[in-house]
Structure formats: structure tokens, C-alpha cells
Write a protein that binds this DNA or RNA. Structure first.
Lengths: 190, 190
DNA sequence: CCAAAACATTGACCTAAATCAAGAAATTTA
DNA sequence: TAAATTTCTTGATTTAGGTCAATGTTTTGG
């Protein structure tokens, strides 16, 4: 059950069996049914989660109340509102399960205790955040510099399995285009 | 000369005078004239820099060869291509000075040595990267969900001093709009 | 297994912002 | 300080992609 989170962390630091046990002991396994809101805007995000199984979306509501999808998180990804989680401030985003999910969760208190106990993990988490950062950087570039069609092509290349499990209008939202336009792009009618 | 970088780091961890000296000893002070390219796309980024004085832009070139500004970095900000710097891979971006600049630079080797010597800094750097991440997150949301006019208004609120020192067409590029459109937005003719 | 809800497609039309072109200002450099 | 370069503005025109509305299709839950 915990093998994948350990794999994710040991790509950056090496760990003894005892250290692995320690890490595991700090995370809580939890199941959520489909369409569960696990973080509401306005709340402080109390978890950082690793996705064992399932798929989630993180999103904002715009002025007209419609969803703007920021990320999809599926197996072996992390999901949280990092700035709310670490700085204890109310989140502006929502996080929902799109499928039944199994997550490994940690609270801020426990994460800090874990890092005090295994300071070498600081490095692993720092590298993971850096990776997240460059993903956002590339998306921002795409969003500024590329056409809707190009953004969709890149999305398909990077996340070929997401379209099979996520409704198309959410992908449109993620790409910053209307569902109608995405439909037309897919049909080649653009 | 180093007071601001120390202030930036001590907002997250407290340091003794000796530790402060250690940090300072790892950074190299350097001056650059205006319009110097300090990172070329294709090169590996060999520095992480703290801006003491001056202003820089980081940008990509799009398919037609025109600049897409990703960030401006001025006093007390960090500038680097994080993913190239840490992962040793060729950068896709450029970094240029927009004014004469004074920077404090560190190489990856030195940064790792510094972190081995003062592991409590891991925390400070992690928090800084998290902050960067949420800045990108908000910009991505803005870029997907808000109009050019709204994006400009937010930019002015967040960075009121940048327009006084950076050409307007670079701000347009940063916001993902054409220089002509930004000119019209400013004139209220939109 | 059927009804209801959610999702996707298509066409007609609209609009925010891009592009093109020309000139005016401002800044730099010699 | 004059010439050169860079930057900014304005108008005319185009276009990518949005919106609205109707219809078809798939999925879900009772």
C-alpha cells in the first residue's frame, strides 16, 4: 500500500528500512467516494496527500461561479493547496475526487515532526516542489504563447491517460478553453 | 551589502552571527551592465542569484522568435532557472539584465555544501520555493480566467513599481497581451 | 432497466484581442 | 545635440475562440 510513496521519496534520497517504517507511520490511509469535496475554498488545507488510487481535480471558481481547473492529480502524484497548508491561511481553491480515491495524508504538525526526525527528507520534498514549479512555469508559457490547439496537443502528449478518465469539459477548463472549442479542436474542425 | 539576503533567509529560520558569516562566505557578489544576457537558452544555469540592485527579466522565445516574459526580478528577489540549476539540464529560458545589476550568486556545488553545513536552511529555501509556486499558480489562474484588463489591474496592484522601470511592451508580454492592446487598456479605450 | 442528469456536438453569431501599418515620442549613443 | 534606435500610440482590419441555443449521446442512480 505504501510502496509507491516510498518509491517517490527514494528517487531523491536513500532510506533504511527503519526510516521507511518511520515515514509510513506518519501517513494516514484514507478512502473517499467519488465526487467528494476534500477541500473547500475558505477552509485551511489540513493535509498534504499522496494519491495511491483514483483521480482528483483542484480548481478555483471564477467571478461567474464556473470552475477553472488548475490540476488533475492521479496515482503517484501529490495533492494539496501548498500555500494554505504551509502558511495556515484560508485556501482559495477546491479539491474534489473525480473517482473513488485512496490517499495517504499527513498533517502539517506531523510533517514537521517527520522532517525533524528525518531531516534528509527536506531534500526530497524540496526537489518535488521544484518539479511542481517547473510544471507550472511551462503551463504558464503555453497559456501565454500557444494556441488552444497546441495546448491540447501538448496535454495529450504529457498526460495521455487523463482523457480516458476525465470528462472533456474539465480538460477544456484545464486548458483554458470552452468545451465547445475543445470539441471542435478534437474534430479537426479548427 | 549582504543584509537583505540575510533578512530574506531569517524570515524563516533564526541564525547566529557565525551562521550568517558562513552564508555570506558562500555567495559571490557580481555586477553586470545593463542588457547583459546572464543565461542563454541551451546552457545549463550555473547560478541561483539574489538581486541586490537592478532589475532582470526571464523569458522564453516562442515559435516566431519573439520574447515571452515569464518574470521580472528586482531588489530582494531570487533569479535562476530552477529546473536547469538543480537538475543540470539545458535551460529553455533566457535571463537578461534590464538595468545595471548587482547580484549575489551561488553555484549548485556551493549551495549543496552550504546546506550540508547549515541544514536548517533547507527549510528557508523550501518555503521560498513554495511561495514562488503559489505566485505561478495565481498567475496561471489569472491567465486562464481573467481578461487582459483585469490581469493588468492585478499586476499594477502587486507590482506598482515595475511599470516605472520596465518598458511597457515587456509588461504586455508578461501579461500575455500585445503591446498595442496594453496601450489601449491604459488609455481606458477598452 | 429506465428516467434523469451529465456530457458532447454542432451551427450561427459575437467579441476580445491580435495583427498590420503608420506616425509620434522618448531614449540612447556618438 | 543630432541621428539612430527604441518605445508607444492610434486606426483599420482580421481572427481565434467565446457564447448561445438546440440536439444528440452517455452515464448514473433509484
Amino acid at each position: 500500500m505504501h510502496t509507491e510513496i516510498i518509491k517517490a521519496l527514494t528517487s531523491y534520497v536513500s532510506l533504511t528500512q527503519e526510516e521507511v517504517e518511520t515515514i509510513i507511520s506518519f501517513y494516514t490511509y484514507k478512502k473517499y467516494p467519488k465526487k467528494t469535496i476534500i477541500l473547500h475554498a475558505g477552509e485551511v488545507c489540513k493535509f498534504e496527500a499522496f494519491v495511491i488510487k483514483g483521480c482528483l481535480k483542484t480548481y478555483f471558481l471564477d467571478e461567474t461561479g464556473s470552475e477553472v481547473v488548475l490540476t488533475f492529480a492521479s496515482e503517484n502524484w501529490w495533492v494539496s493547496d501548498i500555500s494554505s497548508f504551509y502558511e495556515g491561511k484560508p485556501s482559495k481553491m477546491y479539491i474534489d475526487t473525480l473517482e473513488a480515491c485512496e490517499l495517504l495524508l499527513i498533517t502539517l504538525e506531523d510533517k514537521e515532526a517527520l522532517l525533524r526526525q528525518l531531516p534528509q527528507l527536506e531534500r526530497a520534498f524540496r526537489i518535488m516542489i521544484q518539479r511542481h514549479l517547473s510544471v507550472y512555469q511551462e503551463r504558464l508559457f503555453a497559456s501565454i504563447a500557444l494556441s488552444a490547439k497546441e495546448r491540447y496537443a501538448i496535454f495529450l502528449e504529457k498526460y495521455p491517460s487523463i482523457p480516458q478518465r476525465v470528462p472533456q469539459h474539465l480538460i477544456a477548463s484545464y486548458l483554458g478553453i470552452s468545451p465547445e472549442s475543445l470539441s471542435r479542436i478534437r474534430r479537426g474542425r479548427v
